[in-house]
């Protein structure tokens, strides 16, 4: 018996090479592999679970259309300013081509989709940034569309909800991009002074000028788990201070611990939690007198 323990297990004599035919058994897109825990899941099932991994809770990236479907009441969304497109104000070489390419790739005109809709029956104005278009970077159109959505919320006296996802400023628009931070903030200030409710939900990634403007200006600042949120990039900070940063640096959980967020909420509970907040902010609350 002892001997058996020490004998080497026989090496496999043959290696199998999967044939081309076998590979095509599973058509593209039917299965999705979780980049975090490597679990392989049916894409359909994953989508039903708001693209949250069943095994490790990893939040797969969501585009604006998927977000609308999972967050707003079915059929309630009415888009605003869909046709607005960007110019090339600085005459930046290649910018127009890049925009054109992303328009084709994503079917979107810009990196944010704005509109009106409802969450469990409660009306809201909403802006959803889309990181698949130019990394969700903020240029004149993004700033203008968000500002208009805020103004619409003000006009209709409904809450303003924003899902942020952005790499930051759009370099090709230079200082015009920077000024969108101020423009959106000015609009939020007026809305807030009129008693407007602002809910910001930061998703992966929310960085640069977006994190330093409307993303952080909510009455409630919320985030999805594991999202990267911060102003300066990790690499830049490391190079500047010549120190290695902690593993969880600039994650949602890190921000919660450091007082920047009200709560980190899983995408599967997001709609319920937010409709709870909206519910509490409904005008005309009455004080009920039931004895208990």
């Amino acid at each position: 018996m002892l001997k058996e323990l020490f004998t080497k297990t026989k090496k496999k004599k043959y290696a199998t090479i999967p044939s081309e035919a076998a590979k095509q058994d599973v058509p593209e897109g039917i299965m999705t592999k979780c980049p975090n825990c490597k679990k392989i899941m049916y894409t359909k099932e994953l989508n039903k679970n708001c693209k949250v991994c069943f095994q490790c809770g990893y939040h797969h990236q969501m585009n604006s259309a998927e977000r609308i479907n999972s967050f707003l009441d079915a059929g309630s969304f009415r888009e605003l300013d869909r046709e607005m497109i960007s110019g090339n104000p600085l005459g930046f070489p290649g910018y127009e081509e890049k925009l054109e390419k992303d328009r084709e790739k994503t079917g979107l005109n810009e990196a944010v989709v704005t509109g009106l809709g409802s969450v469990n029956g409660l009306d809201v104005a909403i802006a959803i940034m889309d990181a698949t278009f130019r990394m969700g970077s903020m240029g004149s159109v993004v700033g203008e569309k968000i500002t208009r959505a805020i103004e619409k919320a003000d006009e209709l006296s409904v809450p303003f909800i924003i899902f942020t996802a952005s790499g930051g400023a759009r370099m090709q628009e230079g200082v015009l991009s920077l000024m969108q931070m101020a423009k959106t903030s000015v609009a939020l200030k007026r809305f807030s002074d009129n008693g407007g409710l602002i809910i910001s939900i930061m998703t992966h990634p929310t960085t640069g000028g977006v994190s330093a403007s409307f993303a952080s200006l909510g009455d409630y600042n919320l985030a999805e788990p594991g999202a990267l949120i911060g102003f300066a990039g990790r690499r830049i900070i490391e190079q500047t201070i010549r120190e290695e940063l902690p593993e969880d640096f600039q994650t949602s959980e890190f921000l919660l611990k450091h007082g920047q967020l009200d709560a980190v909420i899983s995408r599967t509970e997001l709609k319920e939690k937010i409709s709870g907040i909206l519910e509490i902010h409904q005008p005309g609350g009455t004080f009920e007198w039931q004895e208990n």
């Binding site: 409630y220 450091h258 007082g259 920047q260 009200d262 709560a263 709870g276 519910e279 509490i280």
Partner: peptide
């Protein structure tokens, strides 16, 4: 009812 806890001072910590 419907308690939603809010965290953080928005500047240093929770």
């Amino acid at each position: 009812t419907d308690f939603f806890e809010c965290h953080g001072d928005r500047s240093y910590g929770d």
